[in-house]
Design a protein around this nucleic acid. Sequence first.
DNA 1: TCAAAAGTGTTAAGTTTACACCCATGA
DNA 2: TCATGGGTGTAAACTTAACACTTTTGA
Lengths: 226, 226
Amino acid sequence: MSSTFYQQYPKFHVAVDCIIFGFKNGLLKVLLQQRPFEPHAGEWSLMGGFVNSDEDVDDAAARVLTELTGLKNVYMKQVGAFGSVNRDSGDRVISVAYFALLDIDRVDKERNREHSAYWEDLSTLPKLLFDHKEMVQRALTMLRERVSKRPVGFQLLPPLFTLTQLQMLYEAIIGENIDKRNFRKRVAEMTFIEKTDEIDKRTSKRGAALYRFNNTAYQRDGHFKL
Amino acid sequence: MSSTFYQQYPKFHVAVDCIIFGFKNGLLKVLLQQRPFEPHAGEWSLMGGFVNSDEDVDDAAARVLTELTGLKNVYMKQVGAFGSVNRDSGDRVISVAYFALLDIDRVDKERNREHSAYWEDLSTLPKLLFDHKEMVQRALTMLRERVSKRPVGFQLLPPLFTLTQLQMLYEAIIGENIDKRNFRKRVAEMTFIEKTDEIDKRTSKRGAALYRFNNTAYQRDGHFKL
DNA sequence: TCAAAAGTGTTAAGTTTACACCCATGA
DNA sequence: TCATGGGTGTAAACTTAACACTTTTGA
């Protein structure tokens, strides 16, 4: 099916841009690349790409993410469409931004290198191309709103994690310190955050219990609040 | 400036669709139209339109809204981009949805008529075109999250309103009953919701005090919570 | 005079915050 | 043995929720 009525209207390039969040050493990070083509080649930018004709916009974002990280089935949410006439100085491009949350240790470093992509601390971002800084800012706002109400933070951690790691993650995202006892009290109420009998000895002599997020249990009866 | 690099990539029709919320007789309403062109002419749909080449996507949404209502400077927020390949059976169209909040009594009824547009109760929506129901659903979710934290509900009321009206509005949006005394206690704490010395005699013999939202005062020192 | 909506405070329950010490272990 | 991060409970402050009667006035 196709419509002659639609044909009188203009068409646009449509791109996706990915705000890829990671967490390492107590810091939130974003994966940035040096733009590989003109205009503005070499400038710091988000990883992006054009949407293909036979491809959902969501799928385009997932494809671009996989291209850069080697990962599939990553947690992604749309941030929104950015559609100012002059946002891209190359030509008119409407871009749909997505943020992704992933375990930084699972990304394919080789692919990062091929794309001149590097993890940058969120607190010391360089100047970014076009409106990419605004995209990051809006993604971060969404992440902050979401992370206290939904169990999405786990996406940024390995499958097994310590409570100290989890707390540091939350502190990094919301940008303030959390009381350790109050934090653990709240975690203890969420039975779908399960203590395993594994111990992580890497960060202390005593060792810290490793926990796991049980998504099935969460779906059943979970109320998340941190 | 224009780029030959971009030219190898496909282009798309980009549309906007507006979820226009109003409030009347204690009920939340949405302005729907009977689609004026093929395919699916006559089906219930959101008011939409194609983006022009020289126009920001946000501006296109505002233009479409003005076309249908005669109103300018209406409160609008982007809901998000809808980009499935087959979402529009006419041809591939990527649509960016926006919701608008307005005082239902200020819309130009003549323009509504010209566009075959009618206010429908949110609780009894007809079947809608394509993915428009999903757009309404997402807009409603955003409105619900937003209305308790930000003073946006006033956009749906006339400049002067009674506390009963305000409470009914909140009840309609969040979909549950609110205790009158607790509600008024919270309103009283927000000094930027100002009692005027006007009285509304239309809904009771005794008459109800009319209030006004003072945005300047809110910007200065306002903390909003309802 | 009565029906109908407007207006008004107090108490109990629940939630959130503040806070400090002992434990286990490897070096 | 000691330095380091892991682990644990209680009480006060604050917030939220529940609840019912009096007022005004036009018909």
